[in-house]
Simulated scan of single mutants.
Amino acid sequence: MFGPGDSTFGPGDVRFFDRLAPLYDFVMPGADPEVLADALGVATGPVRRVIDVGGGSGRAAALPAGLDADGPVVVDASAGMLARARERGFGAVRGDAARLPVHSNAVDAAVIVDALHHFPDVSGTLAELRRTIRPGGVVVIREFDPSHPLGRVLAVGERAIGMDSAFVTPAALRDALEATGFETAVPDDGFMYTVVGRVPDSEDASR
């Protein structure tokens, strides 16, 4: 379920997003700041160091007002999308979500908004998030539910235009996060749902 497949655009659909980058911010809505704020609030301690994984132009990097955070850093495989993120004033690093260019225990939180289904190696991504997020930190994943009627339409539509999308249900994502060592919660569900994974405060708790 979490493996790569055949597509027109290639693993991660990078070529598609390189082409779309100049128009992306005009056709895609921003992330819901209230949802992100509530989910990031699950973390123990302050949330200052944040990475937006697969963040493209930085839609989700514009974090909620009042969050005690440094400037979030966007990590993405698309050079075109990262150029847009830099234009918007965000830190931007080109990298593979399954091999994050981040030190272990180096970030307080990661967000992945409307991007996980494009990642060729979801299991590897979750393992990297577990490595890079410090104890008590969180990953917030916003995704589309393929078991929802609108989710089924979206999945068919992305396949029809040649994307290599692999959507997962909230239950499957929660299971995968827990198998990787996260404590989990699903604060909202529906067509677009949120799963929060929290690294235990004590590393020993997950061993």
Rank of each mutant, 00 (worst) to 15 (best):
D6F: 14
T8C: 09
T8V: 14
F9R: 09
D13L: 03
D13C: 09
F16N: 05
F17H: 12
D18T: 08
D18P: 07
L23A: 15
Y24G: 05
F26L: 15
F26T: 15
V27L: 08
P29A: 13
E34I: 10
A43Y: 09
A43I: 12
T44A: 09
G45W: 14
V47N: 01
R48W: 06
V50S: 11
I51S: 03
D52W: 04
G54A: 07
G54N: 01
G55M: 04
G56H: 00
G58T: 01
R59D: 05
R59E: 07
D70F: 11
G71R: 15
V74K: 02
V74P: 02
V74D: 04
V75D: 00
G80V: 00
L82W: 01
L82A: 00
A83I: 09
A83F: 11
A85K: 11
R88G: 02
R88H: 08
G89H: 10
G89N: 07
F90C: 11
G91W: 00
V93C: 07
R94H: 11
R94W: 13
R94K: 13
R94P: 06
G95R: 15
D96A: 11
L100T: 02
V102E: 04
A109I: 05
A109K: 04
I112P: 02
I112C: 14
I112H: 01
P120V: 08
V122I: 13
V122W: 00
S123P: 00
S123K: 10
L126S: 04
A127K: 12
A127I: 13
L129Y: 05
R134H: 03
P135L: 01
V138Q: 09
I141A: 08
E143Y: 01
P149H: 06
V153T: 13
V156T: 13
V156L: 15
G157C: 06
M163G: 07
M163C: 11
D164Q: 10
F167N: 01
V168E: 01
R174L: 04
D175K: 12
G181H: 09
V186D: 08
P187W: 11
D188V: 14
V195L: 05
G197P: 00
D201T: 13
S202Y: 07
E203K: 14
S206W: 05
